[in-house]
Each structure stands twice: as structure tokens, then as C-alpha cells.
Amino acid sequence: MEHRTDSLTTDASRPAPRAVEAVLGARRAHTRQQFIAVVARQLHEIAPGTVRVRIVPVTVDDRPRLWVELVAVTGQVVSTSADQCRQARNFLRRAFPDADWTRPRSYNAATGALTFDSLSVPAELGIETAPAVAS
């Protein structure tokens, strides 16, 4: 009986590339889920009920600042405490050291997504664009 080897079989000491990719993908997904859970738990400890954090760069007295909102699932602001907002901001800046904090950001605690937060006028106001102003 002839022993046949082809591309579908591999050396027993070396896993197949697909299996390695599957294991690595599962590990990355597990690590990501752990990260999301830890961040959500930390935000809840800072200000209970926080599910979203909005961070917007602003200028106050000619000095750059970051405006922080801790938002509940209802869309209402959870806390306006400067200390809690500062803690959340510092925590997210450490969690996402490569993020560009000169642009408005929104962190969703359920998904773990830190996204660009484009500012817009609420549709209820009926204002699509501001009129041009002559200088």
C-alpha cells in the first residue's frame, strides 16, 4: 500500500495554516471582548450608567481643552462632575494612546468603538446648513 501526501496533509508537529489563523483570531476576539468589558466596568465605576463618552476639543480663554460628556443609554448626560469627566477622559486616553484627540471622539461602551464624532445640527431644528456670512 502506497502512502500518499498532498497539500491537505501536514506534518503532525506543525499545525495547518488555517488552524493557526483560526486560533489566533479566536484569541484576538477574546482579548477584545475582555478589553470592552474592562473599559465598560471602569466607566461604570467612574459614573454609574455611562454607556457613551463624548470628547470634543474646544478652546476656552485661548487655551485648548477637551469637553467631556458621560452619556446614559437614554441619551441624557450622566454626570457633569469635573472630576468624573477628567477620570473618564484620562482613562480613555490611556486605553487609546494612538487616537487623535484633536478631533471630536465618541466611545461606545457596548461595542468598544472609539469613533470620529461629527458634530451636526439636530434634524428637528430644520436647519440643514448655515447661510453664508459675508465678511
Rank of each mutant, 00 (worst) to 15 (best):
S7Q: 12
A95T: 14
H44V: 00
S118P: 11
E2A: 08
N108D: 15
V68I: 07
P57T: 01
M1Q: 12
V53A: 08
L125D: 01
A130D: 04
A82T: 15
S13R: 11
S135P: 14
C85T: 07
S135Y: 09
V78P: 08
T9Y: 05
L8E: 10
T129H: 08
P48K: 00
W67I: 00
V38A: 12
Y107A: 05
P104R: 02
V73P: 04
L8V: 09
I36K: 05
A12K: 07
V68T: 14
R105F: 03
R89A: 09
R93F: 00
V73F: 02
F91S: 06
I36P: 01
T129M: 06
L66C: 03
T102E: 10
G49F: 00
A99T: 03
I55A: 13
R27G: 10
F35E: 04
G126Q: 01
D117R: 00
V77Y: 06
T9D: 08
S13L: 12
G75W: 06
Q42S: 15
F35K: 15
A16F: 13
V60C: 09
A99W: 00
R54V: 01
T50P: 06
E124N: 04
R28E: 11
P122C: 01
A47C: 05
A82M: 07
T129A: 08
P131F: 03
R89E: 09
T9E: 07
T9Q: 12
V39S: 08
D61S: 10
L66K: 03
R18V: 14
V58M: 05
T111A: 03
V73D: 14
S120D: 05
D61A: 14
T111E: 03
A95S: 14
R52T: 09
Y107C: 06
D117W: 02
P131H: 03
